[in-house]
Every structure is written in structure tokens, then in C-alpha cells.
């Protein structure tokens, strides 16, 4: 009886494993089928590099260059803000903060990760946008910069905790060796510890980028949502993800607009895949 039960459990687990793989494959096939249908009518190069996204004009234009650049700009801004802050915070938590403060900070960072992105977006609209509007004298605060700042906050917990882990796992003997040569704590941090933790830092940046590129709702709310070629951070933009979220409801199933949104999905999929691959590579790279 017990035997049969174990057998049953074992098979059940096996089945769930197989099921999850099958689901991934099915999703991927579906995405490809729907997305690639677009290219029956539209040239792939025109899709990727077209400067106009007019999905419902007649004839429609499906150029996603503004969206790609929108995503790039917002991501770049977020990374420029989040990486230095993240490294500094991680160094502080791992190396400088006294023990009692370390625990408080670590739970604080975890708490930041637990805030739903929609809530952050909401807070961003209520506080960040008016502030940017006033500071830069803009017609509206809903800009790429607002998106970048908010996404930086979303990416920070991931970035800080991965960098902190990699700093903590730098062998203590490096630190001792450096201090014993008369280096100061600060010299030891930037000349030995950070270089030794560099693969973890790169992985953290990659995963941070992944988090930022994939973020949707908050970005939709706060970037101003204008599908135009961006020229500065102080201008409304629209990202790939926000486009899908905003237009999926109104696109008629089977229309080329509908297919175009799936094609954007493929682009996003490829981007995330490459980023995760890179992050994995950095994380598992052995120190040469």
C-alpha cells in the first residue's frame, strides 16, 4: 500500500515536471505562430526599424523603433541610477554597517522588493512626476526620466542583494592580505574586494536590466506613453511592454495589429533570454 502511494507520488512529480516544460514549449510555439503571422504582410526590417507606430491608421504602420528606443532609454537611465547606488548600498551593508544595522538594512531591502510595482507606479505619479515637472519646468512630469527613477527603485533590491552576496563570498583572506599590507579599509574595498566580486556585480546588473526591461504596468503609468522617437530623458516615451499592455484589449484578434503585438512579444522574449543568459554566464564564470 505504502509502496503504491510512493509510486503514485513519484509519477505525479514527474508529470508536473514534464507539464511545465510542455507549457513553456506551447507558449513559445503560440507566440511564434501569432507573431510571425505579421510578417506575411509586413517586412521584418520595417517592423524592427520603422520609425512610426500607427497601428490603427489606414494603412497601419508597425515600426517599433520608437518602442525599442523607449525601452532602451528607460532601461539605460534606470541602470545608470541603480548600479552606482546599488554597489554603494551593497558595500555599506556588507562591509561597513555595524551588525545590528546590517540586519535592519537587509530586511528593509527585502521589503522594498515586496512592494507591488503598481503601488510604486502610483506613488511615482503622485509624487515623482509633479516634482520633475516643477524642477525641469516641463509640460508634464510623466517622462522617460520618471520611468527610469522608478524602475531604478524596483531593480535596486535585486541588484543590492546579489552584489552583497558576492561581496560577502569574497574570501576573507583577500581582505586580510590587503589590510596587512597597510591598505586602508576603503582601499581594500575598491582595489581588492570589488574586483574579486566583479562577476557577481555584472550578473546583478544583468538581472537588474532583466527586471527593468520586463516591467510593465508601472512604466505604462509613469512614462507618459507616447510612441515617438525619444530624443531626451525629459520627454514622454513608451516601452515595448507598455505597448502590449495598453493595446492588447483593443486589438481585434486575427488583425495585423494583434499579430504585431505578438511580434513585440517575440522581441521581448529574445531580449530577456539574452539578458538571462549573460547573467548566468557571469554568475557561473570561474575566476581565472
Amino acid at each position: 500500500m505504502k509502496r503504491a502511494f510512493e509510486y503514485f507520488i513519484e509519477k505525479l512529480i514527474l508529470l508536473s515536471g514534464i507539464a511545465s516544460i510542455i507549457f513553456v514549449i506551447l507558449i513559445f510555439i503560440f507566440l511564434l505562430r501569432e507573431g510571425l503571422s505579421l510578417f506575411a504582410a509586413t517586412n521584418p526590417l520595417e517592423f524592427l526599424f520603422g520609425r512610426n507606430w500607427y497601428p490603427i491608421s489606414d494603412p497601419p504602420q508597425f515600426g517599433i523603433l520608437p518602442l525599442i528606443l523607449g525601452s532602451l532609454l528607460v532601461t539605460l537611465g534606470a541602470i545608470i541610477i541603480a548600479v552606482p547606488l546599488g554597489i554603494a548600498a551593497a558595500v555599506y551593508v556588507a562591509e561597513i554597517a555595524p551588525l545590528w544595522l546590517r540586519d535592519i538594512l537587509k530586511s528593509g531591502i527585502e521589503l522594498l522588493a515586496a512592494i507591488p510595482s503598481i503601488v510604486l507606479g502610483f506613488i511615482g505619479i503622485a509624487t515623482l512626476a509633479p516634482m520633475l515637472k516643477a524642477v525641469f519646468h516641463l509640460p508634464s512630469g510623466l517622462t522617460a526620466l520618471a520611468g527610469s527613477i522608478m524602475l531604478a527603485f524596483m531593480a535596486m533590491p535585486t541588484i543590492v542583494s546579489i552584489i552583497e552576496d558576492s561581496i560577502v563570498s569574497v574570501p576573507k583572506s583577500y581582505k586580510e592580505g590587503s589590510l596587512a599590507l597597510g591598505a586602508t579599509h576603503w582601499q581594500t574595498i575598491y582595489k581588492v574586494i570589488l574586483p574579486a566580486a566583479s562577476s557577481g556585480i555584472l550578473a546583478a546588473i544583468m538581472l537588474g536590466i532583466g527586471r527593468v526591461v520586463g516591467e510593465t504596468m508601472a512604466v505604462l503609468m509613469i512614462t507618459g506613453n507616447a510612441a515617438v522617437l525619444p530624443t531626451s530623458f525629459l520627454q514622454p516615451v513608451r516601452t515595448l511592454t507598455a505597448t502590449i499592455a495598453a493595446e492588447m484589449g483593443e486589438a481585434v484578434a486575427g488583425s495585423s495589429h494583434y499579430y504585431a503585438l505578438f511580434a513585440i512579444g517575440i522581441v521581448l522574449f529574445v531580449i530577456s533570454f539574452v539578458i538571462n543568459l549573460l547573467a548566468d554566464m557571469f554568475l557561473h564564470r570561474k575566476v581565472k
Binding site: Y174, E176, L181, P195, A196, V287
Partner: peptide
């Protein structure tokens, strides 16, 4: 100066 039990050259 100090030399440690396990050689600890920096990863440089």
C-alpha cells in the same frame, strides 16, 4: 608585514 597560512595572492 604578515604572511598567512594559506597563500592569499589577490585575484590580480
Amino acid at each position: 608585514g604578515m604572511v598567512f597560512q594559506r597563500p592569499n595572492p589577490f585575484p590580480l
